[in-house]
């Protein structure tokens, strides 16, 4: 953790701030942060990607979940400096321009999003799950989502979305 005590010159002033090179969604961003700045604050306030949500700032709700080297990570309790040089992915990485990916499409089909505040975190936890386990059971999904709270949906439609995305017989709803 010697990085944190590093003193760097920023704008000609001695400062505890550090210049970090962050790789987010495949792009490298150079940002200046104080040592105690969390990854969430770096992503939202410094880089301006506000898709990742700031819910509880205490690691309890999961709205800030991003992927760090493929692992779902609560960005509100992970220091920005600890993530330098790692591959960080946020919700903005999922779509290709105007084309939604299969998981996003499944959330639309199944009503997996209501208010939408938990959705970015849910999508990132689900992405991590499907990358490791392309055919998860309902139980696997419930466990993978245990750290992502949602008050709107009762989770059912989110689980159905992930099952649809994993191509396991849950069809887009037709009513």
């Amino acid at each position: 953790m010697d990085q944190i005590t590093d003193r760097t010159t920023v704008n000609g002033k001695k400062s505890r701030s550090r210049v970090l090179e962050m790789s987010i969604n495949g792009e490298t961003h150079e940002i200046t942060v104080k040592p105690r700045v969390m990854l969430l604050e770096a992503i939202r306030d410094k880089i301006g990607l506000t898709g990742t949500k700031d819910g509880c700032e205490s690691g309890t709700c999961g709205a800030c979940t991003v992927l760090v080297d493929g692992q779902p990570t609560l960005s509100c309790i992970s220091l920005a400096v600890e993530n330098e040089g790692k591959d960080i992915r946020t919700v903005e990485d999922l779509a290709d321009g105007d084309n939604l990916n299969f998981l996003q499409e499944a959330f639309l089909d199944q009503g997996g999003t209501q208010c939408g505040f938990c959705t970015p975190g849910m999508l990132m936890s689900a992405t991590a799950l499907l990358e490791k386990n392309p055919k998860p059971t309902r139980d696997d999904i419930n466990k993978a989502l245990e750290g992502n709270l949602c008050r709107c949906t009762g989770y059912n439609s989110i689980v159905d979305s992930i099952l649809q995305a994993s191509d396991q017989g849950v069809k887009p709803r037709l009513l």
């Binding site: 990607l49 903005e92 999922l94 996003q104 639309l108 089909d109 939408g116 970015p120 037709l174």
Partner: peptide, 15 residues
């Protein structure tokens, strides 16, 4: 008839 929520796309992209 089920109609996709008009704001759902913005909610799954983070917009």
């Amino acid at each position: 008839k089920t109609t996709s929520k008009t704001d759902a796309i913005a909610k799954v992209t983070g917009d």
